[in-house]
């Protein structure tokens, strides 16, 4: 029997699932891992819902849970334990530019997890530096330096900037 707070939780999170899934997918680069990450985030959020629902920035709160679970998972390797047993049932559909995106996504997946999180939050989710710092629990200076390291790593991984310069993915 759902109580009021449970209903509130479902209403809130249903609306946020696409955003969370997108963030998780950017971080993991893998659909199934992204599902696992969002599912675990949903569990953690419910465990803390009485506190979280009173926060004036629930979105930020949820993002913190997800990003830290991601980083924590990289450390512990829990993401290797499948929460969803079945293989993905839909393959990526081929479309124009998919190959370039794959190259880009592969490069991003090779960047160290913390740096990747900084790049994704800052540039893909447009969060200001201090918000990224709060999300990761580090200082703004660290976000700044992780950004620089992450960008340098991407540049190395993408080779001679050919991809960036020829504008193939634009």
């Amino acid at each position: 029997m759902p109580d009021a707070s449970e209903q509130e939780y479902v209403e809130y999170l249903s609306g946020r699932l696409p955003m969370l899934h997108r963030l998780a997918y950017s971080l993991c680069g893998d659909i199934d891992q992204a599902d696992d990450l969002v599912q675990e985030t949903a569990v953690r959020l419910f465990e803390r819902w009485s506190r979280a629902s009173r926060a004036d920035q629930i979105d930020a709160y949820v993002r913190v849970i997800l990003v830290r679970l991601f980083l924590d998972g990289r450390r512990k390797g829990w993401w290797r334990i499948r929460l969803f047993g079945a293989p993905p049932d839909v393959r990526r559909t081929e479309d124009h530019g998919t190959e370039d995106r794959t190259v880009l996504r592969d490069a991003l997946a090779k960047v160290a997890p913390r740096q990747r999180a900084v790049l994704v939050l800052r540039f893909l989710h447009d969060l200001p530096v201090d918000e990224v710092a709060r999300t990761l629990g580090c200082s703004a200076g660290t976000v700044k330096s992780q950004t620089a390291h992450g960008l340098a790593a991407m540049r190395r991984l993408l080779g001679n900037r050919e991809l960036m310069e020829r504008g193939a993915v634009r």
Partner: peptide
Amino acid sequence: LLRHLDDGPD
């Protein structure tokens, strides 16, 4: 460049 990755899982 990175925004092109903002397609999400399909």
